[in-house]
Design a protein around this nucleic acid. Sequence first.
DNA 1: CGGCATCCGTGACGATACTG
DNA 2: CAGTATCGTCACGGATGCCG
Lengths: 226, 226
Amino acid sequence: MPRQQQPARPARRRSYDQFCATARALDSVGDRWTLLIVRELLAGPRRYTDLLADLPGVSTDVLASRLKDMEQGGLAVRRRLPPPAAASVYELTEHGRGLLPVLTALAGWGAPALDERRPTDAVRAHWFALPLLRALDGLTHAGVVEVRLAEGEFHMRTGVVAAGAEAYGYGPADRPDACLVLGTDVALALGRGECTLAEAVGDGRAEVLGEGPLAVELRGGQQPRH
Amino acid sequence: MPRQQQPARPARRRSYDQFCATARALDSVGDRWTLLIVRELLAGPRRYTDLLADLPGVSTDVLASRLKDMEQGGLAVRRRLPPPAAASVYELTEHGRGLLPVLTALAGWGAPALDERRPTDAVRAHWFALPLLRALDGLTHAGVVEVRLAEGEFHMRTGVVAAGAEAYGYGPADRPDACLVLGTDVALALGRGECTLAEAVGDGRAEVLGEGPLAVELRGGQQPRH
DNA sequence: CGGCATCCGTGACGATACTG
DNA sequence: CAGTATCGTCACGGATGCCG
């Protein structure tokens, strides 16, 4: 009689029942939509409705259920905003932010599949953050880079990312150390590793604004490793 | 009229329909069991029945369906063995082997969840390969390490892994450069990054057999990076 | 309006049985 | 050995309703 469910109400989700680190990870984040919710929350705290808007296709009950699972799994917390705004946001815990390497690895592997944009495909600017984080992985200078694409803007943190800091975020940055203006095609090529940012700047296909050390490094003043 | 399915027979699988590298990756490998099948095939070619045996809980039709999806997605190929053995094996393509960083990242994140072994958990020796590969990531000497656990044996390739070579495999190695004898608890601690192999060898909780440069490095003759 | 809960149709999943 | 067939169950996707 396998999978005997004791009458506990929370009705624990289906497990792979394998003593394996990968299987345990997939027990937590292997369900449909979960890793994409993490991708959204890696950009910062978000409200339920905003998540719904940036995850086209997810149904309301599935999103609510996943968020509840993620709370129970210690991936995210629900935080009530101060009175002026009568709303609450969902926010990754440090454990949840630990999924960043998983997401960047997945993005690196999936980037070559971004060759054609299908007419049914949704787009958000910050979805380019994960591939670009990989492309700029070798930078020595830490700081915040604002990225401007035709699809919109986002910002990301270069260099060693502190444990408590978010790796990227929605919209423009408060005080960016550098500003990166890119076409979609260049962003895709960078994500695929087909060219470096220094090469794209040299070709005039990318533009770096700013004069700080990070901006200089982005332009190729110091070659990033590998 | 969303998601209008044209009468094409292959009935394309459900897609996230997002122009995002991560979403594209999950379109390919986001289905239940797929990444665990990849974990199995990363150890080398396997027959259908062997996969069924090492993936307890998967049903026959789901395994057949996933393998077909993986063939169609260019992740794996089915290869018929020469006449003596009237069977065929499934084998990862180079594209499929590119998922190794995704699997190691997932294993690294999931390793802390391996604190208790539940009575329903299945175990295979080679499931420890991914966390151990991470733990030995900084090694400078390339070679093949045979790992002996209470649960069984497997082997893995250290140093820079050539594109065509498998990162790990089932059972003992043909001609190992070093041999690693571990208890389960030490294997878990290594996977969690709680200690280094040199420390475990120093404590006598791990044993390294062999005299080549790789064996020396494993013992801590040269400290692995970080 | 934000944050779900409910209902329903479809399809994916899991277990078993069966076949070439 | 390597799957296909069948079937019951559950998860998913879409729409709508409720409630603070």
